[in-house]
Design a protein around this nucleic acid. Sequence first.
DNA 1: GCATATTTGTCCGTATGTATA
DNA 2: CTATACATACGGACAAATATG
Lengths: 238, 238
Amino acid sequence: MAGFVDQAGEQAADRDPLGRSSIAERVADLLRTRIGEGFYPPGERMREDGISRELGISRNTLREAFRLLTHERLLAHELNRGVFVRRPSAADVADIYRVRRMVECAALRALGEPPYDVAGLEGAVVDGERAVAREDWNALGAANFHFHRELVALAGSPRTNQTMRTVLAELRLAFYAHSDLRALHAPYLGRNRELTQALARGETAEAERLLVEYLDDSSAQLTAALGELGGTEEKEPA
Amino acid sequence: MAGFVDQAGEQAADRDPLGRSSIAERVADLLRTRIGEGFYPPGERMREDGISRELGISRNTLREAFRLLTHERLLAHELNRGVFVRRPSAADVADIYRVRRMVECAALRALGEPPYDVAGLEGAVVDGERAVAREDWNALGAANFHFHRELVALAGSPRTNQTMRTVLAELRLAFYAHSDLRALHAPYLGRNRELTQALARGETAEAERLLVEYLDDSSAQLTAALGELGGTEEKEPA
DNA sequence: GCATATTTGTCCGTATGTATA
DNA sequence: CTATACATACGGACAAATATG
């Protein structure tokens, strides 16, 4: 009876030890994917009735999914008004980069003695190169994010990994305010490669220097693009 | 009609600009407080039927509150089995302290030039001293937590503040495995005072040294107490 | 290993309150 | 100010999974 989400696997963040998951979680996965792809753009209103009808689920179940995504800051819940796809403000972006600096630098500092396992980083760089080859700037952005998730994963802290995931998902929302995705992502692929090489040589200090530079530049570029747009509360559609 | 939770203010984490909140949020606040006080000890099963009846709310509403607390890692949701108060494992505790080291040290390093506003820190220390005076070790633990939240708040990052709040709430659950709360909290009050004084003098490097020492000792003590108890999945009641 | 009772997962209908055109 | 649309919350129902004897 649950039309669209019968075995919609997706990525399923929180699952049963046996890989099962409730409908609410599968719905949350689906919506997370759609938001990430821009199907529901920032500022969009998520109507309980319409979406629950479309997905063939009850409003109760959909509301459970909404709660999950609200906690990830992908949706904003306004009492008695409904939920909206978040539209990160300039202050949000600043805070996100503050967190990234803290988390990513900490990951580098927490590394033990070389050699380091840079396979995951290299994989993400390769993905990025392939995306550039076919001029898929969305995929390039995804590869960049993947790179930084891998970087943080080197520290081996589940909670930190989750922090990084949610912060990057939120950051992706901010990217939608930017028209030129290529300009936003392309300059950073080479830097990721450099960073990987520095780590492969075991030079953590140099890697950290590159990383801070990277984050400062990326932050500045995005902040400039956001300009005075700001405001999570804006209700006007994109 | 909603018996017990009519205007139950509590502390309300996520609220409307005007201070209103939904029943689900108020219920989450109530349950959070009860869990924090040990009313529902770690490992306890939270039955939908019993609790919803006791609080005079519907099961659906209670389930929304459960989702909120599950995301804060206070509850663990097991598919088709229900939700339980989490019982952090030794690995969880290790990760929590990893996060604390990262977050609290980053907060110190992010400080600008002295003088620093240590009023919040001093307030928490005073609270701790009062708690010691009346031998209320639970209150002392709360004051210690408050101190470290204030410390992180100096960095002025909303997302980091939230991270700190949730990790400390989770850590409190781990403390329940420890029988001697005094031994767990009392040794650290003086250290908080020292740390505050170092910051008041503007000596951030010294403050960080004290902090790392603090966290390492606290972590070691708790880990030793936890011993081989571990396991979030244990179903046996406390 | 089976039959039963309990509890969760999910859905639906509906009444009430709130926001907005 | 009214009307409408929508979110909030409730209660009942039933299937499915799990726990229990």
